[in-house]
Simulated assay, not measured.
Amino acid sequence: MPLTTIQLEDVLNHPEYISIHQMPGILLDLRYASADNFIGHKLYGDFDGGLLHRQAASQLARAASILQEERPGWRLRVLDALRPGRVQRLLWERVKGTPQHIYVADPARGSIHSFGMAVDVTLEDEHGQEQDMGTRFDDFSLLAQPAQERQMLQAGLLTQPQLQRRLLLRACMQQAGFHGIASEWWHFEAADSGWIRANMLLVE
């Protein structure tokens, strides 16, 4: 079944999509709005990227509040939020036909980011210091995969403090209704991906 789409230009004033720029406990550090990403240049153009569907935004606010309770002064640092389909196609073209294709959703299926229902996020402490999670964002290695964490720990490639920070992030996000994926410690989805693709608008 083809996905139902909405143009990015129409989303900017749509009541279902809201800005997360002023959300308490959140810092936006959107990597595809800069050159600090695996492509190596800015992908978002004039779009600032700081939008989510209101359901995901509400859950993110809850996760930030939970983190504050656990670690006063800490914040969630958002690395990516709503990602238009036009940008997803650029990422897909870069990895298609390579071993890295497993890390980028085929735009024909629709990335959950393109529905405004996924967020990439890490932790920063009360001094604004981004925390060491064992890898950088968009690291295409086994070390970035939650499914491999115990093996990486046993092999000495992941430290206990790095794992504890990942577990803290995961616990805050899960308590707020998000769930992670097996291949990326930073990626969280606000609902079941099948339900999202069947019921929500994909932003082009």
Rank of each mutant, 00 (worst) to 15 (best):
T5A: 02
E9A: 14
L12F: 13
L12T: 06
N13R: 11
Y17A: 11
I18R: 03
P24C: 12
L27C: 12
L28R: 14
L28S: 01
D29F: 14
D29M: 08
A33M: 09
A33H: 12
S34P: 13
A35R: 05
N37R: 05
N37H: 15
H41S: 14
D46H: 15
S58Q: 07
Q59K: 14
Q59S: 10
L60W: 01
A63G: 05
P72S: 10
G73T: 04
R75S: 01
R75K: 08
R77T: 01
A81R: 00
A81M: 04
L82N: 03
R83Q: 12
G85P: 00
G85Y: 10
R86Y: 09
V87F: 06
L90P: 05
W92C: 03
E93P: 00
E93Q: 13
K96Q: 13
I102C: 08
Y103Q: 04
V104K: 03
A108L: 08
R109K: 10
S114R: 07
S114Y: 00
G116N: 03
V119G: 04
D120Q: 01
T122F: 07
T122V: 12
G128P: 01
E130N: 13
R136C: 14
R136L: 09
D138Y: 14
F140H: 10
S141H: 01
L143I: 06
Q145S: 13
R150Q: 08
Q151K: 05
G156D: 05
Q160R: 09
L163C: 08
L167M: 07
L167E: 06
L168M: 11
L168G: 04
L169S: 06
C172V: 03
Q174K: 04
Q175P: 00
F178K: 00
G180K: 05
A182W: 07
A191G: 05
S193A: 12
W195S: 11
I196H: 02
R197T: 01
A198V: 09
N199A: 11
N199F: 09
N199R: 09
L201S: 01
V203M: 08
V203F: 12
